[in-house]
Each structure stands twice: as C-alpha cells, then as structure tokens.
Design a protein around this nucleic acid. Structure first.
Length: 108
DNA sequence: ATCATGACCATCC
DNA sequence: AGGATGGCCATGA
C-alpha cells in the first residue's frame, strides 16, 4: 500500500501533461519537502507497483537527465515514451529542458 | 530508536 | 568532464 507521501508524489506526477517533464526536486518542493527529492525517486521505484499508471518517464533530475532510465525495461523505453510525446531527448537528457519543464508549484 | 538504502542536489577537486 | 563527499529525509528491517 502507498503511504500518504507516495500518494502525493504519484498524484503530482500524474498531473504532468504530455510533452512536458518535471524534476524530482521540484516535485519534492511542491509537496513541502524540498530536501526530500530522493524520496521522490524512491517513490518512483514503487510507481510500477502502483495501481494507477504513473508517467515516471516524465520525471527527470534537475539537469533534465534521465537518471532513472535504467529502472525501465528496457531502459530506452523512457526516452522512447518521451519522444512519443514530443519531448526531444538526446544523450539521455531532455533538450529545451526549461521549455518542456512543468513546474508544479507554478501550475498548481 | 538505530542502521542502511536511495530514479537527488550542490559542491569540491 | 567526471568522480568523490556530505546533506537531506522517508521507508523498512
């Protein structure tokens, strides 16, 4: 079962529109735990176990790097999914990161 | 309560 | 550019 913290993370991640991405740190801050960015990634690991679908591929690190791509199967799926949504990924990182970046604090 | 873990972040070298 | 270090915090054993 998911804890409240994870629920918040999942809920926020699901709010990320297509063609947009967000960062662990931004999500953490949006939840009020700005320094718990690691927990966001931790939660993402459980995302696959979540009942509702979680677009974890839309979550990257502060540099737009696909840090968690190795958790997908296969790893390249992350970039593929992003590319399918119009997000340009090059060398495991998001191009025009600032443009496609979706800030929960700003949107919510 | 303590220890170890981690899909991070910032900084230093 | 790339590796190492410390910090921060939730989760589970």
């Amino acid at each position: 079962m998911e804890t409240n913290f994870y629920e918040q993370v999942y809920a926020l991640v699901r709010l990320i529109p297509e063609g947009r991405v967000s960062s662990y740190g931004a999500i953490a801050r949006a939840l009020g735990a700005g320094k718990a960015s690691r927990m966001v990634g931790y939660a993402m690991r459980y995302a696959g176990l979540a009942q509702a679908p979680v677009p974890a591929h839309r979550v990257v690190n502060s540099s737009g790097l696909l840090t968690g791509k190795f958790h997908f199967s296969p790893p390249e799926q992350m970039a593929e999914l992003l590319a399918a949504e119009g997000v340009v990924v090059e060398n495991d990182k998001v191009r025009h990161f600032k443009q496609v970046f979706w800030d929960p604090l700003k949107e919510i």
